[in-house]
């Protein structure tokens, strides 16, 4: 039971972090696989079953724009941040840094 609870909390914590990570990475244009590989290369492993629905949701929320293009003889869908996505990313990054600083202070005070 304890492991399940820890796993659930870990999953909840990661969810927000993955959104910020995806927005950060899509400051440059990516298609599905290249996005996942770029995130993994920087230490953020995201499962396929998580990433693709997330990207779709972010596009429906107006944070991403996409277009189909042919590359290497295959049609690929390329994503990047919209203007709203850029503004949202900047705000989320600011919030994240503030949260991170608060958590560091909290953890530092326990020592």
């Amino acid at each position: 039971m304890t492991n399940d609870a820890a796993e659930k909390l870990h999953s909840e914590m990661r969810r927000g972090a993955i959104v910020l990570g995806v927005l950060a990475q899509l400051r440059e244009e990516h298609y599905g696989y290249s996005l996942r590989k770029a995130l993994a290369d920087k230490g953020l492993e995201v499962e396929e079953g998580t990433l693709y629905p997330l990207v779709r949701r972010l596009e429906q929320q107006g944070l991403l724009v996409s277009e189909w293009r042919e590359e290497d003889k295959r049609r690929k869908r390329f994503y990047r941040l919209s203007d709203l996505g850029k503004a949202t990313y900047e705000q989320l990054l600011k919030d994240w840094r503030e949260l991170s600083a608060s958590l560091e202070a909290l953890n530092g005070s326990d020592k």
Partner: peptide
Amino acid sequence: REAIEGELEG
């Protein structure tokens, strides 16, 4: 399909 083919290509 695009996503899966991208993964297989990778």
